[in-house]
Amino acid sequence: MEKIGERYSLLSYIREYFCKILHEEKDLSPGIAAIKTLLYVLENDKSETVQELDSNFQTTIDIMRNTDVPVTSVASGCELFLRFITFAKLDYKTFDECKKVMFHRGKIFMKKLTNARGKIAKLASTFITDNSRILVHSKSRLVLKAMEHAVSLHKHFRVFVTYSSLDNSGKEMADELKNIGVPCTVILDSAVGYIMEQVDMVMVGAEGVAESGGIINQIGSFTMAICAKEMKKPFYVLTESFKFTRLYPLNQRDLPNEFKYTSGHLRKDLSKEHPLVDYTPPSFITLLFTDLGILTPSAVSDELIKLYL
């Protein structure tokens, strides 16, 4: 009885812990927060078999998916994390030994992830040239970081940010860009077509990268990608590799509902709700900047096959 109670108390704390991380570190992607939470569970878990640990992980993931954060990166991050640490499962005799190895691997994984941003920023900033004009959609930490890096290299460029009326995150992005000294204009979401002819490239982040090489991102990205393709402007995506997910959407309708709506919305009548994300097919994407290097969309599935098969 006591043991069950203990487990219950740990799991009940998870939600709190997860939200606390997200609240305290605004700079953190929900995916990384989820991985941090899993690592915390692994550290404090008292289970004695691999199966028990697995089920604890599963409940943790379910709890995190049910919070009101965008679920895409949480799902992919957790999946990849489990994949990474559980490679060791069968190689060790005692469970304690195994758990130790798993924790160690988890730490390595975390470290890799935190280094990823710097690497991507470096890769992407070489594509930002002097006097270029860049269109950005809503707020992306990676895009911001890449631009910061470009500024540190004394590059002068101009940025257009969409207002992103879903959560007005474009305004936040513009403020942060002004702070680092980048001239910046906030435009309406409906002005994407108008502004497209003036810009040199489009840079967006991603909540998730599908196996097709397409991306799942805040709604409006697809519109931007279509406009960019029509006007022959390069469409660049900045994303960490933990956002790669084993999902192959055929079109918008095929995208799972839990990705499109928050858990709060899912309980309501979906026909009256507005989706939060859209899917941009690979044919609209020029390049993806990831910590694995600069990839074409088709290379994403190659990387995923290497990871999962």
């Binding site: 196996e211 097709s212 090489g213 084993r246 192959y248 690979p282 969309p297 088709s298 599935s301 190659d302 995923l304 096959i305 290497k306 999962y308 098969l309």
Partner: peptide
């Protein structure tokens, strides 16, 4: 194995 884009045949 998975749902893949055509271009992943060599990887498979």
């Amino acid at each position: 194995l998975a749902i893949l884009p055509c271009t992943s045949v060599p990887v498979v």
